[in-house]
Design a binder for these strands. Sequence first.
DNA 1: TTGAAAGCGCTAACAG
DNA 2: CTGTTAGCGCTTTCAA
Lengths: 355, 355
Amino acid sequence: MTPAEPRPDGARAGSPRPSTIEDVAREAGVSRAAVSKVIRNAYGVSDRMRTQVEAAIERLGYRPRVAARAMRGASFTFGFEIPQVGNDFLTMIVDGATEALAETPYQMIIAPLGRDQKGDMAINSLVDRQVDGIVAISPRVDPAWIERIAERIPVVMIGRHDRSDRYDTITGDDRSGAEQVMSHLLDQGHRRITHLTIHPSRPEPPWAGQAGDEPHVIRTAVYRERMAALGLEQSVVHTMFDGSEAHDATRALLASPEPPTAIFAGNDTLAIGVLSAIAEAGLDERDVSVVGYDNIPIAGHPLVSLSSVDQSGVLMGREAARLLFERLSGRTEAVQSQIEATLRERRSSAPPRRP
Amino acid sequence: MTPAEPRPDGARAGSPRPSTIEDVAREAGVSRAAVSKVIRNAYGVSDRMRTQVEAAIERLGYRPRVAARAMRGASFTFGFEIPQVGNDFLTMIVDGATEALAETPYQMIIAPLGRDQKGDMAINSLVDRQVDGIVAISPRVDPAWIERIAERIPVVMIGRHDRSDRYDTITGDDRSGAEQVMSHLLDQGHRRITHLTIHPSRPEPPWAGQAGDEPHVIRTAVYRERMAALGLEQSVVHTMFDGSEAHDATRALLASPEPPTAIFAGNDTLAIGVLSAIAEAGLDERDVSVVGYDNIPIAGHPLVSLSSVDQSGVLMGREAARLLFERLSGRTEAVQSQIEATLRERRSSAPPRRP
DNA sequence: TTGAAAGCGCTAACAG
DNA sequence: CTGTTAGCGCTTTCAA
């Protein structure tokens, strides 16, 4: 705006350019290399030099530029790709990882997905930023593509049940979790049970053979098996992931001639949407029971009291960070880590009024 | 682990090093500068060259390294500092910004705060990564320090009501919002109203004179004014931000000889904690009414139905992105943007049983 | 234990 | 319109 800027490099008065490693070296009377070693805690610096350099850093308020470091060595950054910022289960994962990174020089950055964006975009953006490790949560990316990335950067995939010998995976025990849900509902006497889950990938990706590895697909499969085993009629409804469609779908179900007495929702976000439709219809758990998956914090709230499968997101996040650190210190074989799943029974699921 | 790696630079078999701008230039038979211009959409490239270069990029799967770009020019990255990943109000802000960035070459990264970490850490980490713009949401950082950063990088502060001529601000109308809450409760006949809010900074920071600019402090001030004006006894309770302390504090309040008939919570997260204590005590809104602030999505859920002040976080996020882009294209005067606040009355607030 | 020097991949200024 | 060149701030050999 004011075209009379004094010098292009100098910024405005009183704003000295941030100091560089060079400045620190001069101030401490040592070489750049020496400073570099100090800030990296590298081997081969005398105590005297260390104190000198640290004093200079302090005096100058020096902070290493991540970009410059990344060009030669590490960026000291782990990148998290998360499909929805608002999803409380993912939040728990991030919390767990944040905690694990707290006392390390590593920082976490999160690349959120825009609506309708695919996971590739966010993962690519992390790669472009030369993060030292990637935690990917979107289940719908080409495994072969991820493997290629994992050749250069440690990758942990959370959720998907495929095995790779290039990247590590962390999964919940989706089969067991879903079994617990179904047993619970069937034991309570439910027979008309609808399963509500998110849409499968559309259009079918070329690697669709792998779709069976997605957590939601496994949960659905278990539902089908259990229903089939008892000769019960299966009813699977697909919606978008954000809960508002789950609400509408439930309303439609309730208006149908033979509404279900129980709904098994693929995750808690969907279940919350289901509960809202049930409440709006003036019904409760004796009319329609609901069970969710993930045990997000609000599920335990007494006003909501949603039965749900706990698969400790916090633990998953902590584990993800641990696996990345292991890779960084040399591990090359892939690891598959499985987290237990436990159904927490709450008020939202009860024996049906008329079985 | 396997110390017999063939070459330190070469990675493993079949993993060619990612292509650089140099490779693209060679492949397309042009200079590096030409490629650089194409990828930045810069002025001065013939259509023929553009197509050639784009083809080469495609063939090689080239992606520019952000670190290298950041060293000379821009990183095409906006950084968001957010104090709690799980807070749904902040989520709304991120969603708004994500949407605004969707069709641009800019990417967003989020630097979450660890527990007990201060906002400075996350903001510094963003600066270290040479982001092209910063959106800061933590209210408790030294304004002078932020101003210094804003001399080099565009900064938008969300929430705080201070004025700076170096950085932009976006605020809700906290005074009006709090007035609406208090009028609503008083009109309903409540006289014993407790205000529950998060702890003030501790220990007092040197710039504590500015504390009056924090949204929560303003809301508390309005509460005090309105109570004082009617000669009512004030009761302010401070808790941590995560809702579990709000739950405990409420339980204590309910057990006191003269429990409040209404609680005005500083934000929805606290209000949710309050509601859980009320529900656990077997009470409802006719015993103790609750009003929150932020109107997070769950507040509108029929099982919760929390009265709350809406200050459109989505709008704030969108606005933040817009302000950064304006700065990038030359604006130098600071802007203060204010978002309207509107109370949404729901079931959680009702006239007291015995006024 | 310390320092000198060679780049990492890119952009910007300038020359042709 | 296109290419040449000089760094950006750091890490990393490699000598001293």
